[in-house]
Simulated assay, not measured.
Amino acid sequence: MSESFAQLVLSFLDEELVLDRGHVNTEARGNLMTFGFAPEGFDAGLVEQALVAVGKRLGLRFADVAGPVTFYAWYDEQAGQLRCSVASVEPHNLPFRGGFRPVDSPVPVVALMAADPLPGVVPWTDLREVSDEVDASPDEQVEYTFPVFAVKLTR
């Protein structure tokens, strides 16, 4: 299972990737690939190696491109998917609305996957009721950031 999953991740290299600096969100969505997985037989080491290999090979492909280009991968816990994309931005400017932290190793991303016993399932106990009042302030502020493996592909 994990060997074939690692092969799926490597298939990102076969994709035609388009850069459009004027429309980074469109660019990132167009370059997006998602990979669902089953936790049985999941080999984190193979997946980490595949992500590093993708970053290195894309670095060769985009070495002569002017301006920043970044390959990035993250685990979408709600969807239970590893997601990969390329965008023409610096690693700290990736097109996410939520808080994220760029990491230079895939280990934290893959660790989230390995720790998820039911990918794509959010237990009821993890949900909170939301007030109908527009001006209601939450009783607790939760600062959540997720790791994103980010590889700058250009100099």
Rank of each mutant, 00 (worst) to 15 (best):
L112S: 01
A111L: 01
P95E: 08
N93A: 14
A87G: 10
A114E: 14
V89T: 10
P91V: 05
M113V: 03
N93H: 13
A111M: 01
P95Q: 08
S88E: 10
L94P: 00
H92T: 09
D116H: 02
C84H: 11
S105R: 15
P102V: 12
R97V: 14
A114N: 08
A111S: 04
G120W: 07
F96D: 13
S88I: 13
A87M: 11
G98P: 01
P117A: 08
S85A: 12
D104M: 11
N93Y: 00
V103A: 05
P91T: 03
D104S: 09
G99M: 13
A115G: 03
V109C: 08
P95V: 06
A87W: 02
G120S: 08
A111P: 03
G120T: 01
L112M: 05
L118V: 13
G98I: 10
A87R: 04
F100E: 13
L94A: 03
A114T: 02
D116T: 08
F100W: 00
V110C: 07
P95R: 00
A111V: 01
R101H: 10
A114F: 11
V107P: 01
C84S: 14
R101A: 12
A111Y: 00
R101C: 13
R101F: 02
L112W: 04
A114M: 05
L118F: 11
N93W: 03
G99D: 13
H92E: 11
S105W: 03
G98S: 14
F100H: 06
F96R: 01
V109P: 00
M113R: 04
P119S: 02
F100Q: 11
E90L: 15
S85N: 12
A87L: 09
E90G: 11
L112V: 07
P117M: 08
P117Y: 14
G120V: 07
L94W: 06
R101L: 12
G99Q: 14
D104T: 05
R101M: 13
P117N: 06
P119W: 02
V109L: 03
V86P: 01
P119F: 06
N93K: 15
A115M: 05
V103D: 04
R97F: 14
P117Q: 06
V86A: 01
P102K: 04
A115H: 11
V89E: 01
L112I: 06
V107L: 15
V89D: 02
E90W: 14
P117D: 03
V109H: 01
V109F: 09
S88C: 14
V103L: 04
N93M: 13
